[in-house]
Design a protein around this nucleic acid. Structure first.
Length: 524
DNA sequence: CTAGGGTTAG
């Protein structure tokens, strides 16, 4: 009896494959491989495919590639599986490359192939391929396939094409909740609020993802109150829904609301994950709440979640922004692997708390570690130079960013430079920079110039700056407070009185400085 | 045996 069983298991590919799949489903990769190796004669393409899938589902893409190369024969499923593997790790380039390769050697793609490729390129970079793949989908009569069409909805959403988005959706012969959800997300991404709402209301059945997509859509369209209203109506919430709403408040600058909601989540019994904690830390960073930030930190440690790079960088950033620069550095040093973001956070932390020299030193360390700076690094560096009064260093960094690092200065960088020149009293240089920069000056740039004119009581340039600012934002308080300061300095009291009157009429008020009051609740 | 929708630091 036992012998009979053994002979079936080793000679029947069907049975062998079922066993391999069972192992893979339960994460027993080693057992699957052992079974696979022990039955060299009972294997067919499907066994190889199952093994390939096993590596991919267990995030062993390298081993998967190795196995793929060893395969004696490959069918379209082998290719589809490999493509899915690259998509899984977000390697769109490999997906496209392998897809082209497979076509070249004459493997006929299936609906699965298109679903995988289209959804992989929807992320970024190959958007132009969406229409071309769509054309092939039409020719092969795959348009009505719900999987293919759902992937195409995402593709057209990325292209900003709400018309084709709808056409693709209408082509689906049997729509399901996933395709409706893709439609909602797509419309929301393009800012088509009414269409998204209508789709949500008319769809036959909603699930938790539909609700979460709607909430997320409101968040992305800067409507946090609408989002909350929808969030409150949800029949059930999971960690995704909570995280979307918490990070939504955070992204819209409603930091206290974000933290209050984080507290409610803890009371609800739903466990936060790395994203949730990360968003909570950002909210603490946003409102400089060191008190809550520390408690969130403890919560992370107590949760036992793996500390990934994203989470640890949020932690560094929180401490840096809350002014606890030492803790930021300690958290940074404790990171097993550091990335650009965590380096940036430390440089930014030094810069904004007046440790200009340390910010520059940290930048040098970062370069020694072989990390390439990005535009954010330079914003921090230039602002460090501004706060420290390092005019020459600032000029040097500014000119090196494009020359040595290929980073085109953005308007933020020009604003830093205007600030730098302005503080040094070189208002003409600041003005020249503004005239020559390839952007229209914005409120930040003009604000820096106005501030400089105020500090140095430069009436002539101050008036010009104020006039420009007036065109952008006629009731910007900086205009009036700074002009009145300049006139006041020079004893032009009639002008000051006149200005005060105008300010009163417009309701402009001098911006008040205030300290951050810690919200008086606790997060355990 | 292979496929689609919702979160993530500066």
């Amino acid at each position: 009896m036992i012998n009979a069983f053994c002979s079936i298991s080793s000679s029947s590919p069907k049975f062998l494959n079922a066993m391999i799949n069972d192992h893979v489903r339960n994460g027993r990769l080693i057992d699957a491989r052992k079974l696979f190796d022990e039955n060299p004669h009972g294997r067919n393409v499907t066994s190889w495919n199952s093994m390939l899938n096993g590596y991919i589902k267990n995030d062993q893409i390298r081993l998967a590639c190795q196995l793929f190369d060893e395969m004696p024969e490959r069918d379209v499923v082998s290719w589809n599986t490999l493509l899915a593997g690259f998509r899984r790790i977000g390697d769109s380039e490999q997906v496209v490359r392998r897809f082209v390769q497979m076509e070249r050697i004459g493997v006929i793609p299936t609906e699965v192939t298109f679903t995988t490729v289209i959804s992989a390129i929807s992320n970024i970079g190959f958007e132009a391929l969406v229409q071309q793949l769509h054309a092939r989908v039409i020719l092969l009569a795959f348009s009505s396939n719900v999987f293919v069409a759902t992937a195409l909805i995402g593709g057209y959403a990325n292209l900003g094409d709400s018309i084709d988005l709808r056409i693709v959706f209408d082509e689906i012969s049997v729509k399901n909740v996933t395709s409706w959800n893709a439609l909602i997300s797509g419309y929301m991404k393009l800012g088509c609020m009414d269409e998204a709402r209508l789709a949500f209301e008319t769809m036959p059945g909603r699930n938790i993802v539909s609700w979460t997509s709607l909430v997320h859509g409101y968040v992305c369209n800067k409507m946090p109150d609408e989002a909350r209203c929808c969030f409150d109506k949800m029949p059930e919430r999971n960690v995704f829904s909570w995280t979307v709403m918490i990070s939504g408040y955070e992204k819209n600058g409603k930091f206290v609301e974000a933290l209050e909601l984080f507290l409610s989540m803890r009371e609800s019994g739903v466990c936060p994950n790395q994203s949730t904690f990360s968003s909570a830390l950002s909210a603490c960073a946003g409102c400089s709440s060191l008190f809550i930030g520390k408690q969130v930190h403890v919560g992370i440690l107590k949760s036992g979640l793996p500390l990934d790079v994203v989470l640890l960088s949020s932690l560094v950033d929180m401490y840096a922004k809350c002014g606890h620069v030492n803790a930021a550095i300690r958290a940074f040093e404790a990171m097993p692997e550091k990335n650009l973001v965590s380096w940036n956070s430390t440089i930014c932390g030094f810069a904004r708390h007046g440790f200009g020299v340390k910010a520059l030193e940290q930048f040098e360390r970062m370069k020694k570690h072989g990390i390439r700076p990005d535009y954010i690094t330079f914003v921090s560096l230039l602002s460090a130079c501004g706060h420290g009064g390092f005019l020459e260093e600032g000029e040097r960094y500014f000119s090196s960013m494009e020359r040595d690092f290929g980073i085109k200065p953005r308007i933020e960088h020009y604003a830093c430079m205007v600030d730098l020149y302005g503080r040094a009293g070189q208002i003409d240089k600041a003005e020249k920079l503004i005239r020559e920069m390839p952007f229209e000056p914005d409120v930040v740039v003009l604000g820096a110039l106005l501030a400089a004119c105020g500090v140095h009581s430069d009436l002539e340039h101050g008036l010009v700056a104020a006039e420009l600012m007036y065109k952008l934002e006629r009731d910007h308080p900086a205009i009036y407070s700074l002009l009145s300061k300049i006139y006041g300095d020079r004893g032009g009291w009639n002008e000051v009185i006149e200005l005060r009157k105008v300010m009163k009429e417009m309701g402009a008020k001098k911006q008040k400085g205030s300290s951050w009051i810690q919200p008086s609740f606790c997060v355990s």
